[in-house]
């Protein structure tokens, strides 16, 4: 039975098992890289304005506007199995009832090692609102810079690159003067 069919069959079986072995080895090799770089996160200001946003509600609700500075060197996270880095800044707070809330206010995709030195003076990219539609009586919030390492093949890993030392309070909501 050494016809063309069985030969093709054998060669493709060998090829696919070698490929699987290689992929598993690459995926496992990622576990050896345990870089945990830290950066600096600084909240410059938080402002709260009552505003109307038609996408979510017809009524006015408090929206928070956050200005922040980030400096971080995340180059150690790039190894041979890193496809990209998903970097995000989140606000964490417990509302008046003690329920935990996490809101991403800014994110960035880093695809190259050269771009992994982060130096940002920015403001929130996404709407920051509270479920109860007001930030009154909401305790101060912590902000954290987190990242998600996405591999070419294998498991996704998460980590934290920075966190505010002290909680940042929400100011009183006030009408914007224009």
């Amino acid at each position: 039975m050494h016809n063309i069919f069985s030969r093709v069959n054998n060669v493709s079986a060998l090829f696919s098992s070698c490929m699987m072995g290689l992929l598993v080895a690459i995926a496992l090799s990622t576990l050896l890289f345990t870089a945990d770089p830290k950066g600096n996160l600084n909240i410059a200001s938080v402002k709260v304005f009552p505003m109307k946003n038609r996408r979510v509600s017809a009524r006015k609700q408090d929206l928070a506007f956050v200005n922040f500075n980030i400096t971080a060197d995340l180059r150690p996270l790039f190894n041979w199995n890193t496809k990209q880095l998903f970097l995000y800044l989140e606000a964490e707070y417990a509302n008046g009832q003690g329920a935990k809330n996490e809101v991403v206010i800014w994110d960035r995709i880093v695809r190259r090692k050269e771009d992994a030195v982060i130096n940002v003076i920015g403001k929130n990219k996404y709407m920051f609102r509270e479920l109860s539609s007001t930030f009154k009586n909401v305790p101060p919030a912590h902000y954290a810079l987190k990242y998600n390492v996405m591999p070419h093949v294998g498991a996704l890993t998460y980590g934290e690159a920075g966190r505010t030392l002290e909680a940042v309070p929400f100011p009183e909501s006030r009408e914007r003067v224009s």
């Binding site: 998903f86 009832q97 003690g98 329920a99 935990k100 809330n101 996490e102 809101v103 991403v104 479920l131």
Partner: peptide
């Protein structure tokens, strides 16, 4: 899709 906000409800 990626999770952007989580709110626990007591």
């Amino acid at each position: 899709h990626r999770v952007l906000e989580t709110h626990d409800v007591v």
